[in-house]
């Protein structure tokens, strides 16, 4: 019995020792061929997501409609793998994006304001709130890279976003506004005479957050990827008080990447 056990351990070790070089060979085959361990990747994908408060405040009673806007994400990334086995590395890139959303939600006692050319109407709105968000800009991700297997790569790290164009506008209707406080003058609003708002000017031009990326190599050059860009800053400037809660940009991308070498 004792002898049999020892034999098993030796066998396992032998097999393991034999498996290790084989795995390394696979990683090499599917990894970059560049002697420096640098890899350049071009990607194009579809982006879907939205700008949302988290957690969803109780004032938002239901989300009745959601339609993504645009949904383009193209860019390139360079990564450099380190160590003898080149399983770990760092990556940086540049992505251009055009994404956004259109939502229709039922809200109750939603604190808001409509501001136009110095005129202001503020209070608590109950009814339908329709929001359109359109964002165009660039993302710069800085990520740690881990090759989980010869085909799977997992990346994570911070990202920074610069907006070239940012729009946050919408309208409220089929309800009423209580002026200033819930005990204030009631102002009825219909769809024909909807009250519109535009907070585009109150949005930040810089955002940062965390990005998570999964990449699966179909061939040595082509891979499918999915990633999540989770904004960690309120999309509005800190002095913007009109909406009572912070809102974050959360977008997912799925697409195809091509590794140049």
């Amino acid at each position: 019995m004792h002898r049999a056990f020892l034999t098993l351990i030796v066998l396992c070790l032998a097999l393991g020792a034999g498996a290790e070089p084989a795995a390394n060979e696979k990683y090499r085959q599917w990894g970059t061929r560049h002697p420096s361990g640098v890899q350049l990747r071009i990607n194009a994908g579809y982006a879907i997501g939205g700008t949302t408060p988290l957690p969803l405040p109780a004032e938002i009673r239901s989300i009745d409609r959601f339609r993504p806007y645009g949904g383009l994400n193209v860019g390139f990334e360079a990564s450099k793998m380190f160590g003898k086995k080149r399983r770990w590395g760092l990556a940086a890139g540049l992505h251009g994006f055009l994404h956004g959303m259109k939502t229709g939600a039922h809200v109750k006692g939603y604190k808001m304001a409509i501001v136009r050319d110095g005129e202001k109407m503020a209070g608590y709105f109950t009814g339908v709130d329709e929001t359109n968000v359109r964002l165009v800009g660039m993302t710069i991700p800085l990520k740690g890279v881990w090759r989980a297997s010869h085909r799977w790569t997992i990346e994570a790290g911070p990202f920074f976003q610069l907006f070239k164009k940012r729009e946050f506008e919408g309208k409220v209707y089929d309800g009423y506004l209580r002026e200033n406080t819930p005990t204030g003058q009631k102002i009825e609003m219909s769809q024909a005479n909807a009250a519109s708002y535009d907070f585009s000017e109150d949005m930040r031009s810089l955002d940062y957050g965390l990005t998570f990326n999964f990449d699966w190599k179909a061939t040595r050059h082509w891979s499918l990827y999915g990633n999540l860009d989770w904004g960690m800053t309120d999309v509005f400037k800190s002095n913007f008080q009109t909406i009572a809660f912070p809102m974050y940009s959360i977008y997912a991308n799925v697409g195809v990447a091509y590794s140049v070498f």
Binding site: A58, G109, T183
Partner: peptide, 14 residues
């Protein structure tokens, strides 16, 4: 989102 939607807030009007 539905899963994290809170209970309906109590009425504020009086």
């Amino acid at each position: 989102l539905g899963a994290c939607m809170g209970d309906e807030p109590l009425n504020q009007e009086c």
